[in-house]
């Protein structure tokens, strides 16, 4: 069981790498080094701020685009191209396939993020010529970004398990946008009354909550992140990804592969 999941995961990773997904790193490197050089000439004061803001935002956006576009194709593309037939006619359970795909995609993103993180730290070093203690906060932000990816991956797989690639992309992307304003949604729920309040509160807890995972701007201003928050965010991401992934398994387990 574990071996099969690992094989599916590593095959997913290999496919993604061969599909030139990691080429996005080049675009990232160009963007970041360009910004580092340019901003250094404009202002000394905020160059570090800009590098952190821009670097982390790019890490997060590039990763989300990859997660959505690969994630939605993972299941539906295999159905469309009928590669799934030759996999599921082997002693592979359907849930193993879903979990394996998730691990492979998450692994791809972690590797991608790792290289980008090196880029961010290199750019930081370039602009300030040294590392200070507060730079460790960037690691926290990166960790939160990876948690964000886990949630997006699981959602992309969930949609991919029952919907067409285009619709899945639309769903996943809108949930990303809504999730970024999840706290506003809950605030709005708090101001509503009666049935609306009930409805909006439900929706606010159902959509993924990305606002607590986005600490980029506060970290750029060297605001510390509470250990409690790190711990709770980890739990939250794990619970949410489990939920979406179980949903994907539940749907996929009953799906006729026409």
């Amino acid at each position: 069981m574990k071996a099969r999941i690992a094989h599916i995961a590593s095959n997913t990773f290999r496919e993604a790498v061969r599909d030139r997904v990691l080429y996005n790193l080049i675009a990232f490197a160009v963007l970041l080094s360009g910004a580092a050089i340019l901003v250094g000439q404009i202002s000394i004061e905020i160059e570090k701020l800009v590098v952190i803001n821009l670097g982390l935002t790019a890490v997060s956006l590039f990763g989300i685009v990859i997660a959505i576009f690969i994630g939605i194709g993972l299941v539906s593309k295999e159905i469309e191209k009928r590669t799934l037939y030759t996999v599921l006619s082997r002693p592979v359970r359907r849930w193993e396939f879903i979990v394996g795909k998730f691990c492979g995609l998450a692994g791809t993103l972690v590797v991608n993020t790792f290289f980008m993180a090196i880029g961010v730290f290199a750019a930081l070093f370039y602009v300030s010529h040294k590392f200070v203690r507060a730079d460790a906060l960037v690691l926290v932000a990166l960790y939160f970004i990876v948690l964000e990816f886990l949630i997006i991956c699981s959602l992309a797989l969930l949609f991919s398990s029952f919907s067409s690639p285009l619709l899945s992309a639309v769903f996943a992307f809108s949930l990303f946008v809504i999730g970024s304003f999840a706290e506003d949604l809950r605030g709005f729920a708090g101001m509503a009354h009666g049935f609306t309040r009930w409805l909006v509160t439900g929706a606010a807890y159902l959509v993924p909550n990305f606002s607590a995972l986005n600490v980029i701007s506060s970290i750029a201003h060297e605001q510390p992140v509470a250990a409690q928050l790190i711990w709770h965010n980890t739990l939250y991401a794990l619970f949410y990804a489990t939920m979406a992934l179980s949903g994907a398994v539940l749907i996929f387990e009953h799906r006729n592969l026409k």
């Binding site: 359970r93 359907r94 849930w95 706290e183 809950r186 807890y205 159902l206 909550n209 607590a212 928050l229 709770h232 965010n233 739990l235 939250y236 619970f239 949410y240 489990t242 939920m243 179980s246 949903g247 398994v249 539940l250 387990e253 009953h254």
Partner: peptide
């Protein structure tokens, strides 16, 4: 069996995520 386990996972982890979210807030 798989469906039952997956269904239980959906319910439990949704509840757990809501509780965690509440704590985060």
């Amino acid at each position: 069996k798989v469906s039952l386990v997956a269904g239980a996972c959906v319910v439990v982890s949704l509840a757990a995520s809501a509780v965690t979210l509440h704590r985060i807030d």
